[in-house]
Structures are given as C-alpha cells and as structure tokens.
C-alpha cells in the first residue's frame, strides 16, 4: 500500500460508518415523529418550578398526570416564564418548553405504573426540584 492509499481507505471506512449512522437515524426519526391520528391532546405548561396539565376534556392536574394504558397522547408544551424541558425519562418523552412557542411530543404507554417527570433545561433556583409524576392506569 502506498503512502496515501491507507489514508484514503481509512476515510472511506469512516464515511461508510457515518452514512450508516445518518441513514439509520433518519429512518428512526421519521418513524418516531409521526404522531398517531387518534392521539389525545394534553396541554403541558411549565413554569417556575412545576408542571401543570390540562386534559382534552378540560380536567386540570398539577404535578401529577394520570393517563390510560394503550392510548396515544400528544403533548402540547407551553411555558409561562423561562425555558423548561418536559421530560419523562422512562418513556423517552423529551421536548423543550419555550415561552412564545408551542412544542409537541407524543407517546403511547403500554405499561402501567408510576414514572417520574422532570425538567431537563436549567430554569433557576428550584430547577432540581421541578419534578412531577406520571401515573399510567389500566383501562377497564
């Protein structure tokens, strides 16, 4: 192998791996960004330093969110003051709450239980304590 050949082979391998990474994440992202048509909308509002929720039927909850297993939910994420980040780590639900913007995230729980909700964008004094919980209940 000549002086340059090794380097060209190396760059070729690197580019091949990167193409694989790019294509794979394109496919997965395309899949997970598609919100199911029958997803129920839930308004999520972040403010210093708690989350409040409003269901489609108008019932409101603070800090604790009750959802039903086997349904799809589409979160509409608002912020009242500064930037927050709505995050349910166990369900890979994550999107920033930006004042003046409406962001979306969706998921469909297939398992009952209690899961933590947290804020993942620094928002001041009690950022560490901006926690809530998600309770997924079995539907009869």
């Amino acid at each position: 192998m000549g002086h340059d050949t090794a380097e060209w082979v190396f760059i070729g391998v690197v580019i091949a791996i990167l193409v694989y990474v790019g294509v794979d994440s394109w496919i997965v992202q395309k899949e997970v960004e598609e919100v199911p048509a029958d997803a129920e909308t839930i308004k999520v509002t972040g403010q210093q330093w708690f989350w409040s929720f409003e269901h489609a039927d108008g019932t409101k909850e603070i800090s604790t969110l009750h959802l039903k297993k086997g349904h799809a939910y589409n979160f509409e994420i608002y912020s009242k003051d500064v930037m927050h980040s709505f995050n349910i780590p166990d369900w890979v639900v994550f999107e920033d709450a930006v004042p003046g913007h409406v962001n979306h995230a969706w998921f469909a729980p297939d398992q009952t239980g209690e899961f933590p909700i947290q804020c993942r964008e620094y928002c001041g004094l009690l950022h560490y304590n901006m926690r809530g919980s998600l309770i997924v209940e079995d539907t009869p």
């Binding site: 990474v21 790019g22 794979d24 994440s25 394109w26 997965v28 992202q29 997970v32 980040s85 995050n87 890979v92 639900v93 994550f94 993942r120 964008e121």
Partner: peptide, 12 residues
C-alpha cells in the same frame, strides 16, 4: 448528532 438519540441524551 443522531437525531432520535437526542431524546435520551440532550440536557442530561
């Protein structure tokens, strides 16, 4: 940089 992994890693 892989887009879907941002759900897991960003801000953590």
């Amino acid at each position: 940089s892989a887009m879907p992994l941002d759900f897991i890693s960003h801000g953590t």
